[in-house]
Design a protein around this nucleic acid. Structure first.
Lengths: 249, 249
DNA sequence: CGATCATTTGATTTATGTCAACTTTTGTGG
DNA sequence: CCACAAAAGTTGACATAAATCAAATGATCG
């Protein structure tokens, strides 16, 4: 199994948590072709304003949707790990209103829009599944807005670790209590609107109260109960586990 | 023209800024039927976890996507003004992962999912337009994440006023320099992660430097240049003015 | 026309940012 | 595989934006 095949399989697996796709539809997705690309550390691979012709599926590493401030600081709105497609919605809005960057060495599978569009035309249910996936992404964003606006640093960091844990587990690349998250504390800060210094202190605090540890890019949850309580985490916003979503047809 | 017809017209107008719909498709949307409903001040009309059977189009007033904290505080992730559909994506993900509430007396047109689904089935381009609209919403959320994480109160408030101005103008219910925004300073704070007290001070500051004023629920931009500069506002993220979006067919 | 809700203003506290030095880890070329 | 440079993480002292508390004024609505 090639890297591309493996990551499409991850992506499909996650689609199936939210969408009820027939065997034939699943096969159609598995058959999609894309090209593998390596993006070096810190390279932006989608630039705001540019029109993209393909969708970027993360095969390895961590990518991010970011925003650049006048003074050069970055804000990260969304993290993408293996199995995530960074910009499914570019299928309908190809002119990017956002930027995508590699938080470390990232392997992408770039899938031409044309390939997916034929897929959507012949299988309307796949289009719905894609849209549903974008909707879940939007849910994550909305949750982040709430967290940043109304919760302190500890809760925010805790929430991110919960969220990523559940996502990792759902995609099958870790468990919610133990997974790799290959980003720096500074990048963590960019996600949560904190300085790297404060992230560091917050991590110590979370470690000291035996909630979670983050060392050498590995998240280890020490007490899931406690962590979710600090984070006020409720995974409903991820819209997972709802293959009950009726087929539209 | 009834209220429902008028608001569908607003909605359609906005769709057309992003999507290239044929006359026939436009007529099909105009013909959609929904029922008018009045939601009193502060009533939640969509509750997380509940399954919705219809989409909510705002006809009058302001609605919001919100998140509730353990201590009772609210965070608002998104504002919806006349012509906005609050939950288009519920068409594909009917179990709500979010809440919707009325920030004042709100008139909604509730359009049954069934109606829109037949529409999407017969007119695939309409489905794309809907998805595109959700994608734009997600862009707004992502931008808000960036603002809250990396900008101070003044820039955040300024940015919201810019964003809403452009949206109002695009929908045709005001100009970017003068429009009604019928919400309290406390609700403004809920959007931007600030206390009502601090919102108040920030508004004074923006007023004092002749950027913008907000009185009796009317936003009056005194100096658009200055305001956008304070906000670092660039409307690209709204994905407006791109009817060049190819038809998928 | 009183009561509730929203806005305004001041005094004080707190969470987080900033600056700076130091240590540890990582990655790379010899 | 080592040595060393660069990047990341850690810690402390201090600064500041925004929160909190509190009280007064102004608006709105039965």
């Amino acid at each position: 199994m090639t890297l591309a095949e493996r990551s499409i399989e991850l992506f499909l697996r996650r689609l199936l948590l939210r969408s009820n796709l027939s065997m034939e539809e699943q096969e159609a997705i598995r058959a999609v072709k894309g090209t593998e690309v390596t993006i070096p550390f810190r390279r932006d691979f989608v630039v705001p304003g540019r029109t993209v012709e393909h969708v970027s599926l993360v095969a390895e590493g961590v990518a991010a949707r970011f925003d650049l401030m006048r003074d050069g600081r970055r804000a990260i709105a969304e993290l993408f790990v293996p199995g995530d497609v960074c910009d499914l919605s570019s299928l309908v809005a190809p002119r990017a209103g956002w930027g995508l960057t590699a938080l470390n060495g990232v392997h992408l599978v770039q899938i031409p829009h044309a390939n997916l569009r034929t897929l959507m035309k012949t299988h309307p249910e796949i289009e719905a599944a894609f849209w549903r996936d974008s909707a879940a992404d939007a849910g994550v964003l909305a949750k982040l807005v709430g967290n940043m606006g109304r919760r302190d640093a500890k809760a925010r960091v805790a929430h991110l670790f919960c969220e990523m844990g559940v996502r990792m587990e759902a995609t099958g690349i870790g468990t919610r209590e133990h997974y790799a998250l290959n980003i720096t504390q500074e990048q963590l800060g960019d996600v949560m609107g904190l300085t790297s210094v404060h992230v560091n202190r917050t991590l110590s605090a979370l470690r000291d109260e035996d909630a979670v540890s983050f060392h050498s890019h590995v998240v280890r949850v020490l007490d899931w109960e406690r962590l979710t309580s600090i984070a006020e985490f409720d995974e409903a916003f991820l819209l997972l586990d709802q293959p009950e979503n009726a087929r539209l047809t």
